[in-house]
Design a protein around this nucleic acid. Structure first.
Lengths: 108, 108
DNA sequence: GACATAGTTGCAGAGTTACGCAATAATATA
DNA sequence: TATATTATTGCGTAACTCTGCAACTATGTC
């Protein structure tokens, strides 16, 4: 069913449609981090980070590995990073376009 | 501000976090289509398609061009298609993983 | 101007998501 | 076993999203 595919794909997008979850993805870009380390770098509550991590895990964006008292999170598929990078490029090109427009308006 | 970037990026993801909007993006993959043509291919109400198109346009994912009574929509940046394709690859790899797992469980 | 066609907008309801707070689970150590 | 640390879960509230329906706007034709 084609509709089913679109729905599943939208779930992945939905997972990445939150600034904190994107920040988590970027924090994991260069390798594994524990939940505690991620919490520290985001500067929000443990509970909140934990919930976002659960969403990311449910969608298969991250995978986990327990080591004693710590749980290590990592990006499960590097293509996710690539997709994020592309979207950021789109964003930056949009911002550049807008900037150009503003400059043009100013000189007229 | 870095947080602002994550927020903007999440807006783009949010725009793509809906099965119908993804279907619209895929319908526009091979070029321009009018709102009516998109409505036909999706098989939902005109009003609903129009609202999804408005969301896509507000986020800069699509751009428009009026020609008489018709409004032509197109993807504004081909990188959006690339990003979608990558996410679909991620999805397909996930599904393949799951399939493998099921096969393993069956043979045991 | 009257009418048809193409598309958009406003609104209300049903449903979903995000976040803080408190409680709980899992592991390690004394 | 008691305690500390790390992380997750449940719950309530506020904010947001999706959709259908009806009303509206814009363009073209008679």
């Amino acid at each position: 069913m084609k509709n089913e595919l679109f729905k599943l794909q939208s779930e992945i997008c939905k997972t990445m449609a939150n600034p904190k979850r994107l920040e988590i993805i970027y924090a994991l870009k260069s390798g594994e981090r524990t939940a505690g380390e991620i919490t520290e770098s985001l500067g929000v509550s443990k509970a909140n980070v934990s919930q976002h991590l659960a969403v990311l895990k449910a969608c298969g964006v991250v995978s986990t590995r327990r080591e004693g008292v710590n749980i290590h999170y990592k990006i499960s598929n590097p293509k996710i990073i690539e997709a994020c990078a592309l979207m950021r490029e789109v964003l930056i090109e949009q911002l550049e376009e807008r900037e150009k427009l503003i400059k043009t308006l100013k000189t007229v």
